[in-house]
Design a protein around this nucleic acid. Structure first.
Lengths: 233, 233
DNA sequence: GCTGAATTATGTTTTAAAACACAAATATAC
DNA sequence: GTATATTTGTGTTTTAAAACATAATTCAGC
């Protein structure tokens, strides 16, 4: 159990983007209704068809949003890093979740009942604009992803996935190594291909000296060329 | 030029969903800033990379939102019918349009500067919730589309496209014929395939007696089977 | 440390869909 | 009403990616 003062410190520090638009009264409501929960690696946070109850806030760790399609295949739709918010879309749409969310690695999450969030939104326009902005950016990304995943070839899709990982999670101190270490299968599910093809194409990039791979560690050595492949591949 | 009283009548009738959440003062602002414009068949309403200026309202006709990808290929992302709203996403995301919108057939559209809409939203929470709801539903649809277009086979994608057209534009009085008459190319662009494959697959459905085709007229004769193909194809 | 499971790797075969080619039918322009 | 362009329709070839098969390697549990 976390003490209330400690909790308030976490919220203030990590929710800054949201926090700064809240009134003192709003802040009190958030603190009263905020909970923290830890998830193990691969643990599911919520699943497709579940009823949306909470606004989730990733405080520490890495999380993937994905959707299961036809015949065992999985598509990773979005990746989250601290401090990002999810779980609100289905609630606002008044429908069940259309995707699942699971932890990539051991992660800490905060959550607030969506009913509380909705009450706050109905009184605070800046908060409403925050969600409008988030939803709008996600929708643009989703529309762009449709075209990338359907029209680009395998090499282009994988190159793009690698660059997305770089943009999302950043690089280690060497300024080259991706800060996320994911399985070939996840890499495949992110870029709409089979695991074998992810492995094969990744090896291709290594042969072409675009990247250096050591287990799950990916080091980008020729970003320019990788970007070319992502654009036209 | 349309008279103000006439304009107000159009707005009240067609914008009802939005209209009913507006205060008298909001309504006055909408009427003052509302314009109407006609578009010919295939005319572009706005294009990718344009700066978003207006909230568009389709009053009459049919409109497609699409995105050009690699090598001439086009993906139709969404279809609109009266009275639906678009053009606001990019403005809220503070980015240029990532897709284009064009008229399928001769259409009439209303538009309001997004600056005005934003001012209204900042004062009216119900209006904010309206856009949150719209964005949320679109985002769910877009995420689902990603999986459908990447994982289903050609037959499944086309079957689904036909059912989407049915849900979007409804049926003629015979309760079987789609109320939209689109080219094989548009049908292909909607379901992520080449025009030849759209033609070929459509012929296949005719042979299997799932549909009857007469030029651009599509009559659904075996909806159950079509739905099966859409689900598992 | 050993054992079984999961992950990574690579070669081969199969297949779905694109690309190409060309003809027929419609639609559009003059 | 004729000419031209566009759309529709089919057959054939090519190709990108999946499916299948089988090791090698790494990881996790006991």
């Amino acid at each position: 159990m976390i003490r209330k003062s400690e909790l308030e410190a976490i919220i203030k520090k990590d929710l800054s983007e949201l926090w700064k638009v809240l009134t003192p009264e709003d802040k009190r409501v958030v603190v009263e209704n905020f909970s923290v929960r830890s998830f193990k690696k691969n643990q599911i946070i919520y699943a497709e068809n579940d009823e949306p109850m909470n606004l989730w806030i990733l405080l520490d760790g890495k999380v993937k949003m994905y959707k299961n399609g036809v015949g065992d295949r999985t598509q990773i739709l979005r990746l989250f890093r601290p401090v990002q918010y999810f779980g609100y879309r289905a609630y606002f749409a008044r429908e069940a979740y259309v995707s699942s969310v699971a932890a990539f690695e051991a992660s800490t999450l905060g959550y607030i009942p969506m009913k509380i969030v909705e009450q706050l939104i109905r009184k605070n326009n800046d908060l409403a604009m925050f969600f409008i902005h988030e939803l709008s950016r996600n929708l643009g990304g989703s529309d762009t992803k449709i075209v990338n995943l359907t029209q680009k070839h395998i090499r282009g899709r994988l190159a793009e996935a690698i660059l997305i990982l770089r943009d999302n999670y950043g690089l280690e101190d060497d300024n080259q190594t991706l800060k996320i270490y994911m399985s070939r299968e996840d890499l495949a599910n992110l870029s709409n291909m089979t695991t074998s093809n992810a492995i094969r194409t990744l090896s291709g990039f290594v042969n072409e000296k675009l990247i250096v791979v050591d287990g799950r560690r990916i080091k980008i050595t020729n970003e320019y060329q990788l970007r070319q492949i992502a654009r036209f591949g």
